[in-house]
Amino acid sequence: MIGSALISGLGLGSMYGLLALGFYVTYAVSSTVNFAQGSSMMLGAVFAYTFSVRLGWPFVPAAAMALVLCAVYGLLVELLAVRPFASRGSNAWLMATVALGIIADNTVLFTFGKEPRGFALPWAAASTNVLGVHVSALQVSIPVAGLALAAILHWFSRKTKHGKAMLAVVQNADAARLMGINVPLAIMAAYAMSTVFAGAAGIMIAPLANVHSDLGTVFGLKAFAVAILGGITSAWGVMLAGLIFGIVESLITALLGSAYTQILTFTLVIVALALMPHGLFGRAELKKV
């Protein structure tokens, strides 16, 4: 029982982590986030379903095209819902990103339909027995892909020129601008990356779940809790917090029963934040005056 709960928790946890990484990327670069990350995740699933099932494309190009469209959506989020407000020092992007998410959800509702659709991947159903625990290919591939994406993000930000430019923006936007780094472009790139992460999570979760316009709502909320829990300033911290959240959630359900899952998980989040206000792996921000 604990074995299968752990596997479930790892799978869901890495999805929370991926979504939360999206919060981390934009927050690090611009101190803003797309509160409707759940909608970006849903778009990934809906686009992939549309290309793969409705238009009959093979899975890989369908998923790639879906991610490209997710990136475009990220650019739109930044251009329409963040920049007009953040550039004038307003915090209205908080509401604007939520509003854009609601618009996206409802547009999908009208175009895709309200009926949930099944998105089965033949290879995902293959399963095997590991130490008496039944494990499906999908359950293994989700955490692997999630961690791989987190590793790619790490590598990108440390080893590539563009990544380093983004890190410079993180450290000091004004200094970065003076050094000739295009700050608005770096922020747009961060938003595109953030929705691509969410879209990837959506594509991976789609065969496990059903595809519908409401797919990401609860997920987005939990992912935000995870981002804060991990201390939104650390990429690995956020990913790790996702895994911890997922595993704790599954273990509580398996050991104590589903009646306690939400109550206990979120109580633990509050307790953890009360004890460590900067998150499990975050650092206190230094504000120099």
Binding site: M1, S4, A5, I7, S8, G9, G11, L12, I205, L208, A209, E249, S250, L251, T253, A254, L255, G257, S258
Partner: peptide, 10 residues
């Protein structure tokens, strides 16, 4: 809910 395995294994 996407994964009901914990409830079912219980």
């Amino acid at each position: 809910d996407i994964d009901v395995v914990p409830q079912l294994s219980r």
